[in-house]
């Protein structure tokens, strides 16, 4: 069109010239559409970038939690392995698998309780199993209801150095120092409390609830001031709970709390399990009261206890 000879009429030229802007305008539009598409694309990329950042944030948080958990485990392992050989060999590792509950396999010799004491989904832990449980970890649940020392055999047993962060000794209990010197001769029913306690733990480990109950009860009777008495008493309650004897369980946990006081090891666990047993007995109000009392008296309870508390509360339908 624009190559027309110069003698073309003015009107035709005018038309031709008028056409040029039109052509240019079309070219602009097509450029503009590309630019617009890019603008929209930038928006999408920004959204994608935010999503990716979110993924990183979550992964980092998971990683940090796992690292903290591993550090805890490592410390606990150190604490146990630094204990005297006798203690380690007698308590065994991993100890008390029969009591460890939840996603882990049931204890081989356990009399297969129809209802495990804790619903497995939320917090239950065989050692380490929970760490890989991503959804739970995402919610901040890392430790289950089994206290660390139980998982790793750091039960403040005859070991001279209790695991870091172990609860203080109950009032009136004799000092722990020097007890490790006592060489344990595993004579059930003997005069040596450490040996007796170790024997009871062995029975727990085997899932021999009836014998464990008997041994623990006698231990608590014979050595009420032994540093392990609160633990023995607590596990005594567990032997009832695991066999669904909720009345004896509740009575035992309540008595434990009264006897050893709020500062003793497992004080918060006793209240937790008391509430649980009461709930199983259908005493909802009492159970909820107990949970409330636990929350009030033990605001610093381990996260394991607090998580279990939240779950049991919900299970019992506490308002």
């Amino acid at each position: 069109m624009r190559s027309r000879p110069a003698f073309v009429s003015a009107s035709v030229l005018a038309v031709a010239l008028a056409a040029i802007p039109v052509v240019v305008s079309f070219a602009q539009t097509s450029d503009a559409q590309r630019t617009a598409a890019l603008a929209a694309r930038v928006l999408e990329l920004e959204e994608e970038l935010r999503r990716l950042r979110g993924r990183i944030e979550t992964l980092e948080a998971d990683r940090d939690r796992l690292a903290a958990r591993l550090e805890e485990l490592a410390q606990a392992v150190r604490a146990t392995s630094e204990g005297p050989a006798t203690a380690t060999s007698e308590t065994g590792r991993p100890p008390l698998p029969a009591i460890a509950r939840g996603s882990g396999p049931p204890a081989p010799t356990a009399p297969a309780p129809s209802r495990p004491p804790q619903p497995p989904a939320a917090t239950g832990r065989a050692p380490l199993a929970g760490v890989e449980e991503d959804p739970a970890a995402r919610r901040g649940y890392v430790l289950g209801t089994i206290p660390r020392e139980a998982i790793l055999g750091g039960e403040p047993s005859p070991a001279p150095t209790p695991p870091t962060g172990a609860a203080p000794r109950p009032q009136g209990a004799p000092p722990r120092g020097g007890e490790s010197q006592t060489v344990a001769r595993a004579v059930p029913g003997g005069a040596d409390p450490n040996a007796r306690f170790a024997a009871a733990r062995e029975l727990l480990r085997k899932g021999d609830w009836a014998s464990a109950e008997e041994t623990l009860r006698r231990f608590v009777n014979d050595f009420p001031n032994d540093p392990n008495a609160p633990l023995a008493a607590y596990w005594l309650g567990e032997t009832y709970l695991v066999r669904e004897d909720y009345e004896n369980a509740a009575a035992t946990f309540a008595r434990n709390y009264r006897t050893f006081g709020p500062e003793a090891p497992r004080a918060a666990d006793n209240l937790l399990k008391l509430g649980e047993a009461l709930a199983r007995l259908g005493e909802k109000d009492k159970a909820c009261q107990t949970f409330t009392e636990l929350e009030r008296r033990h605001p610093d309870a381990s996260s394991a206890v607090r998580q279990a508390l939240a779950r049991e509360r919900a299970a019992a339908g506490c308002r």
């Binding site: 009345e247 509740a250 009575a251 309540a254 008595r255 709390y257 009264r258 008391l274 009461l278 007995l281 005493e283 009492k286 009261q289 107990t290 009392e293 008296r297």
Partner: peptide
Amino acid sequence: RRRALLAGTVAFAGGV
């Protein structure tokens, strides 16, 4: 037994 047990529970709270 249950009554005794519950009495115990209440007593513990009362003591507090």
